[in-house]
Design a binder for these strands. Structure first.
Length: 262
DNA sequence: AATGCATCCAACCGCACCAGC
DNA sequence: AGCTGGTGCGGTTGGATGCAT
């Protein structure tokens, strides 16, 4: 059907941002807040595409961003979350306050992939590489070959992750930095849980049989999970995830007994 | 010191989803 | 119900930088 381009490419700058552009963008967002990205460049006097402005802000200029210095714990958390979620970088980023999906994606591709390969683990499936039996990863998968949480709308050249995320689950975010900035991950207003000392040694079963589980497209925006229950904090004062139960469909993960299916 | 290669990461691109009309 | 605009996401690219020879 041919959509109109997001901006007039003939009159937009591309490539690296200058300090002046950054300052203009920061000043504008401070004054007017985020949003209206399409009209923002003009209003802010920037010769940039709105998408470009959004990306620059989200990935680089936001005041609540940490940069660099991934710790070993961060690595392990990312690995576990990736085993759980697949390439859902925005969801993974939602569990790492101050990190962006782009940063995590880059870090995954440049560091963690290699790390896993050196352990003899397939970075996409989180299973031992062919023939290798040893695995340092503790993620347990009770079944093999069940559908990926990745959207079906995109061809996924790689095998599915070993863990299925139920749709409609609420992914509670840990508290970001104290400044209260609303980081703009995919699970924007999800309730918060305390810093997660994640034990994602999840037992998993086949995907839920609920009808809502089928359209992968629906998962794209709404796949959110409360991990608090599994961590033993759900329902406690640290977790307010039940408030999310009023939202469309609330599921939370709980440990399954061996052989038990959702 | 110069060159080539490898790695990293910011930014771009295309697609999908959602809301409003 | 269908169309369109706005937004967000994931994959990919290309320039910058670091390292080895």
């Amino acid at each position: 059907m041919g959509r109109s381009p997001c901006c007039e490419k003939a009159h937009t700058n591309k490539g690296a941002w200058t300090k002046e552009e950054d300052q203009r963008l920061i000043a504008y967002i401070r004054a007017h807040g985020e949003g209206s990205w399409r009209s923002l460049p003009k209003a802010a006097g920037l010769l940039r595409c709105g998408k470009s402005c959004r990306l620059r802000w989200m990935n680089y200029l936001r005041p609540d961003l940490k940069r660099g210095n991934f710790t070993g714990d961060d690595d392990e958390l990312i690995i576990k979350l990736h085993a759980l979620l697949g390439n859902k970088w925005s969801l993974i980023a939602g569990q790492l306050p101050g990190r962006t999906d782009n940063e995590i994606k880059n870090y995954w591709n440049t560091h963690i992939k290699r790390k896993l390969l050196s352990r003899g683990i397939d970075p996409q499936t989180h299973r031992p590489l062919s023939g290798g039996a040893g695995s340092a990863l503790t993620t347990t998968s009770s079944t093999a070959g069940f559908p990926s949480p990745a959207p079906a709308s995109r061809p996924t050249p790689t095998p599915p992750p070993a863990v299925v995320v139920p749709p409609n689950a609420i992914f509670a975010r840990p508290a970001p930095s104290e400044d209260g900035h609303s980081s703009s991950g995919a699970s924007t207003d999800a309730p918060r849980c305390p810093d997660l000392n994640l034990d994602l040694d999840l037992s998993v079963g086949p995907p839920p049989k609920t009808p809502a589980a089928t359209p992968a497209s629906q998962q794209r925006r709404r796949t959110t999970i409360c991990l608090c229950y599994h961590l033993g904090v759900r329902g406690g004062e640290a977790c307010s995830c039940e408030t999310a139960s009023s939202l469309a469909g609330f599921r939370f993960l709980r440990p399954l007994e061996e052989g038990q299916y959702i």
